[in-house]
């Protein structure tokens, strides 16, 4: 009897929830129709008519709004993935510095983390864009310039050309997120009992070998959940791209909404594109987490 009662409650709850959502959407739809705005995605196929400062795919103003948004999504993906890699490397290095025997490295680590966490990300992005990258002069005359150069036109590494906007965003997001990841790594390392350090030292392993073979593997279960949060924050923070004029999904949606007046549909697309992106990150990290946990369970009967 108790089971059927449980199911009854569940079904009632589900129906009420659907009803609520239906009422809200119906209300929205009816009002949009009444005001003769309507709820439609037809406009997506019309030509966008605006140029993009940056595109990894073929794009011209005569392409559709849908294509412009997709190009923006790819641009977002590009900045998120590259910042994710750089911030992780930076975070691991600085996190390990904080456990180093070298006083100077420890000091560097604590000043870096302290400083970065006190300054708003928007201010940091502005700093990287206006002060650092636009502060470089235009001359690329030195003889290294065909391998690597930094100027107010961005960064050049062989054939790879990074725009000023992309470079500023990459540095800003990586340096910002790196500080938080460093703290996650430090916390993870602290979760390993000090007896493990003494044990690996006693068998003659070097500090680097010990950290690599003994400490890091044991700190992963404590690191991964915090790392996932930081990656999701990084993805969401990437929308500040609009401040330095990088054409990410948010910046392009903004223009699209301004031109078409389709705020509700535009934001719906924006929401769904971020939902999709963050679900990818969440599932990838969940997969990693399960792998680590499964490896641990193997060790316990």
């Amino acid at each position: 009897m108790r089971i059927s009662k449980g199911i009854f409650v569940q079904i009632t709850l589900a129906i009420s929830l659907f009803l609520l959502i239906f009422i809200l959407f119906n209300n929205l739809y009816v009002n949009l129709i009444n005001k003769q705005i309507g709820f439609t995605f037809n406009w997506l196929l019309r030509p966008a008519g605006f140029a993009l400062s940056e595109s990894s795919l073929n794009y011209s103003p005569s392409n559709s709004y849908a294509w412009a948004l997709f190009v923006g999504w790819i641009n977002s993906l590009k900045i998120i993935l590259s910042s994710l890699i750089f911030s992780t490397l930076l975070g691991i290095i600085v996190g390990l510095f904080s456990k180093s025997k070298n006083k100077l490295l420890r000091k560097f680590s604590s000043i870096y983390v302290g400083l970065i966490r006190q300054i708003p990300l928007l201010v940091q992005l502005m700093f990287w864009y206006f002060v650092v990258f636009l502060g470089f002069n235009n001359s690329n005359n030195d003889h290294y310039s065909h391998f690597f150069s930094v100027s107010n036109k961005g960064i050049n590494i062989l054939n790879l050309n990074l725009t000023t906007e992309f470079s500023a965003l990459l540095f800003g997001l990586s340096v910002f997120t790196g500080a938080y990841i460093a703290e996650v790594i430090r916390g993870g390392i602290n979760s390993v009992p000090s007896g493990q350090w003494e044990a690996f030292k006693s068998v003659g392993l070097s500090e680097i070998q010990g950290v690599f073979y003994i400490i890091i593997p044991q700190s992963l279960p404590a690191i991964i959940p915090g790392l996932t949060s930081q990656y999701l924050n990084l993805a969401k923070n990437s929308t500040l791209a609009i401040a330095v004029g990088y054409a990410d999904i948010y910046a392009i949606s903004d223009t699209v909404i301004n031109q078409t007046g389709r705020a509700i549909e535009g934001f719906l697309i924006l929401l769904l594109s971020f939902l999709f992106l963050n679900l990818i990150i969440t599932y990838a990290m969940e997969f990693l987490n399960r792998f680590v946990i499964a490896n641990q369970n193997r060790r316990i009967r």
């Binding site: 030292k201 068998v203 044991q218 641990q296």
Partner: peptide, 20 residues
């Protein structure tokens, strides 16, 4: 120190085996 540790073994109260 490392030279000594390669030639001196140590056993701890809490065993300190590597659990992973």
């Amino acid at each position: 120190i490392r030279e000594i540790r390669k030639r001196v073994g140590m056993v701890f109260q809490q065993f300190n085996l590597f659990p992973h």
